[in-house]
Design a protein around this nucleic acid. Structure first.
Length: 779
RNA sequence: GGGCCCGUGGUCUAGUCUGGCUAUGACGCCGCCCUCACAUGGCGGAAAUCCCCGGUCCGAGUCCGGGCGGGCCCA
């Protein structure tokens, strides 16, 4: 052991090409499959978001988040947990339907349902393969082998089971409420499917007579054809023009109904005359006020986009014609005092580009308002990382005013498992535990339980996609498939997700799982920030600032990307994606590699009698270790990545290694001192590799296997704190002293290996031998 | 229109909850240096009215109030 062994690492930098080799080794070793309660370890269950195959390229910020979630999983393993880290793909919902309609130039309503579903499936499969490959390349240590899809029979079975349970508990009801409706596509659509455009329209100023007296109120509207459905006129409370009229009644022209004038701060005084008629339904403002004042709605437009019977002489006309006609009539009767053309922000269906109508539709609702107090209490018991993002959930719960509408008129989603009696319309729900498609399956009933009729009609509506997603915690813990497994793993340990879907995924999970199990679905909620572009704007394909992550991975390597993601994105805060900064983060990997290369050139003694210098760096390592573990326990990767970088670069390599280099090479003629240095170098190296392993798994595993063993680093546990303690100011004094000597040599034009005469502070006496050798200090 | 978050060298960032010595670190930049792990490196250096105004305090990047600016979400 006298002569140093050959370096175990040859190249002078880490080569990302090696990453693929290492992943192949991981795949063959298959370490990431969950074994509940094995080796008496405790379980750690991650309820991680199954990504939605929305297209290529994948959002680089989302990919960064998945790498951070992987760090949560890897660090939990090294904290001695059995980790259930599922891999799933979310395949339900609207985006694929829109993509399919565009791709094949077809319309959902005009395409046979099973044909349309097959086309969607095909599109999903394609993008899913791409996403899984990217996840694999990110080094995600999830259970790929047992991966799941939310559109599988197994998953939809669970969604339908959950609905039947809730129905049977009386928590679901059917109600008629206003919805966005596209008369062209013939379907309810979500807010997310609406786009806005400034379009020309007529602003008509209409004379409303007061019920009593001769006064008039001028009301401006872009929707005169909805006059028949007007139930109220509102003005702003600060509007001096109308102070005397508020509280009185006015008469709706043509239709003669009396409606009140009410003050409401939502009115824009500057628009039109400052007096607005509230009709069912011209826009969201109408919906809001109808709800707030509990007005009686008048259905003015039917689902074909025609005026209803309540429109009197206009009944049966399409909206556009009715509008022209009523404007003409109002002008002839001198009721319209002004008709002017304006540009108006109009909601359009993003598919057909026709104006959206708000029409009352019959939909399913899940009760939530009455459970909010209980949900608030449960939310309080959850631990948020970071704590500050608890606020997002709290705010959302405080803003809810209606129950949760759960039905959609779509195809690529889980079907609502109901059949209705063809005679008396009585709803019949099947036994839970199977996957039902009422739109094509025969009814699993013989006779109507109410009237005895034997014919049934299947429900055609589907669930909102969050009905599936919100029970992911039940799915991954095998609620319907393996109750023993479920009891051992539910509630999950942690939910990891982005802050943008707190009000949807997090909230609905809490609601649904509480209603189904009486418990929270998880104990910890990890809320990540969002990836933005280099200027700090959201990254959107439509903005043209979207960055394809694939070339970045190709160019810099996965570990480089992961280290950037860990060290630049603090837990919960948004982060900016910039290639320069990714490149910069990679320099650390070079430093890590070369430190390992140097230390790897020395044999590792089994034990040693440490010098003061060795004890000093071990004390610093001790501090680092506990800081890192604290960070990992908070699931905050920013802490370990930045702390380790600072330690490795600015303390360990710059000062300790320089101080003991001579000893390590054997320059002191003392085997004990030499071995102490070598022992300490390896001790620190091992700890750094272990502490970094969750963040940069490829390079650390490679180095670990080359230097310290044949088994994977992710099978090891984190190091324990060492117990060495040194006064904190010593490190500062040491660093300052070294810098002073370097500067002095520079000022005197001396090479670093030339001798110099300097005074060493008394405080540094314990380190004197190493300092003298390092700087060639003469007395 | 409502809510939340954030404003620290050219860029990113720590520190702000729990006020206290010359504000942390990195990227970039400039100069010198191939010193036997690393030039994808080392050393040194320049570079910040801690967004603005006011207040509390012996003392404010940190606490309070008001502005301005940016971002995200909801409507």
């Amino acid at each position: 052991m006298d002569t140093p062994a050959l370096p175990k690492l040859e190249a002078t930098s880490w080569n990302p090409v090696l990453e693929e080799e290492i992943r192949k080794i991981w795949e063959s070793e298959n370490d990431f499959v969950f074994q509940p309660n094995s080796n008496k370890k405790r379980n750690f269950v991650i309820d991680t978001p199954p990504p939605y195959p929305s297209g290529k390229p994948w959002h680089p910020g989302a990919l960064t988040q998945y790498s951070q979630i992987d760090m949560v999983a890897r660090s939990a393993r090294m904290r001695n947990f059995n980790v259930l880290y599922p891999v799933g793909i979310d395949r339900n919902g609207l985006p694929v339907e829109i993509a399919t309609e565009r791709k094949y130039r077809i319309q959902l309503r005009k395409t046979p349902r099973d044909e349309f579903i097959a086309l969607c499936k095909h599109a999903l499969d394609d993008i899913e393969a791409y996403m899984l490959e990217l996840l694999r390349r990110m080094g995600i240590s999830g259970d790929f082998e047992n991966r799941y899809r939310t559109d599988s029979e197994d998953y939809r079975k669970l969604t339908q089971w959950s609905f039947i349970e809730l129905w049977n508990k009386g928590l679901v009801y059917i109600a008629n409420r206003p919805n966005n409706y596209c008369t062209d596509c013939g379907t309810t659509i979500a807010d997310a499917e609406i786009e806005y455009e400034e379009l020309p329209t007529y602003l008509v100023t209409i004379r409303f007579k007061l019920k009593e007296g001769d006064e008039e109120l001028l009301v401006a509207t872009t929707r005169p054809e909805l006059l028949e459905a007007c139930q109220m006129v509102v003005v702003h409370p600060d509007d001096d023009r109308y102070k005397t009229i508020v509280g009185k009644d006015v008469v709706v022209p043509i239709f003669g109904r009396e409606v009140p004038v009410v003050a409401h701060k939502s009115v824009d005084m500057a628009f039109g005359t400052g007096a607005v008629m509230i009709c069912s339904y011209g826009d969201y403002h109408d919906v809001q006020l109808f709800r707030e004042f509990r007005l009686k709605e008048i259905v003015a437009i039917d689902i074909d986009g025609k005026m209803t019977q309540s429109a009197g002489k206009y009944a049966g006309m399409v909206i556009k014609d009715a509008r022209s006609q009523i404007i003409q009539d109002l002008q002839e009767q001198k009721i319209a005092v002004k008709v002017e053309q304006i540009q108006h922000r109009t909601p359009l269906c993003e598919r057909s580009h026709t104006a959206i109508e708000i029409i009352p539709m019959e939909e399913f609702y899940l009760k939530q308002l009455e459970f909010l107090p209980k949900l608030r209490k449960l939310a309080k018991e959850m631990v948020f990382h970071p704590e500050i993002h608890r606020q997002i959930l709290t705010n959302w719960m405080n803003s809810l005013t209606t129950d949760y509408p759960i039905s959609r008129r779509r195809y690529y989603a889980t079907e609502i498992p109901i059949w209705y009696c063809s005679k008396c319309s009585e709803p019949h729900l099947p036994k839970p535990g199977r996957y039902y498609r009422p739109w094509r399956d025969p009814a699993p009933f013989k006779k109507c339980k109410k009237c005895g009729n034997s014919k049934f009609v299947g429900e055609t509506k589907t669930f909102d996609t969050w009905m599936d997603s919100s029970i992911s915690a039940l799915y991954v813990t095998k609620r319907l498939r393996n109750m023993k497994f479920f009891r051992a793993t539910y509630p999950a340990t942690i939910r990891t997700q982005g802050k943008d879907i707190v009000r949807t995924w997090l909230y609905y999970s809490l609601l649904r799982c509480y209603l189904l199990t009486g418990k929270t679905p998880f104990k910890h909620a990890w809320i990540g920030g969002l990836g933005q572009d280099a200027q700090g704007r959201a990254m959107r394909k439509s903005l043209g600032n979207f960055v394809d992550p694939e070339p970045l991975l190709q160019k810099y390597g996965t570990d480089n990307f992961r280290f950037w993601g860990a060290s630049e994105a603090n837990l919960g805060y948004d982060f900016r994606l910039s290639e320069d900064r990714i490149a910069g983060a990679g320099k650390f990997l070079t430093k890590l590699w070369n430190t390992a290369r140097f230390i790897g050139s020395f044999p590792e003694p089994r034990s040693a009698t440490l010098t003061q210098t060795d004890k000093w760096i071990l004390a610093e390592l001790n501090k680092l270790t506990s800081e890192c573990i604290d960070g990992y326990e908070d699931f905050n990767m920013f802490v370990p990545s930045t702390k380790i970088r600072e330690f490795l670069w600015n303390i360990f390599a710059a000062h300790y290694i320089e101080m003991v280099k001579g000893r390590a090479y054997g320059d002191t003629n003392s085997e004990a001192d030499r071995d102490a240095a070598r022992y300490t170098l390896h001790r620190v190296m091992r700890s750094i590799l272990l502490l970094l392993a969750p963040i940069v798994p490829h390079v650390t595993d490679y180095v670990w296997r080359r230097l310290y063993g044949t088994t994977a680093i992710h099978l090891e546990l984190f190091p324990k704190a060492t117990g060495h303690k040194v006064a904190p100011s010593v490190t500062q004094t040491l660093i300052e002293f070294n810098m002073r000597v370097w500067k002095a040599k520079r000022d005197k034009g001396l090479a670093l290996k030339e001798p110099i005469q300097v005074d060493v502070p008394r405080k540094l006496n314990p380190y004197l031998p190493d300092l003298v050798r390092m700087h060639h200090i003469t007395s």
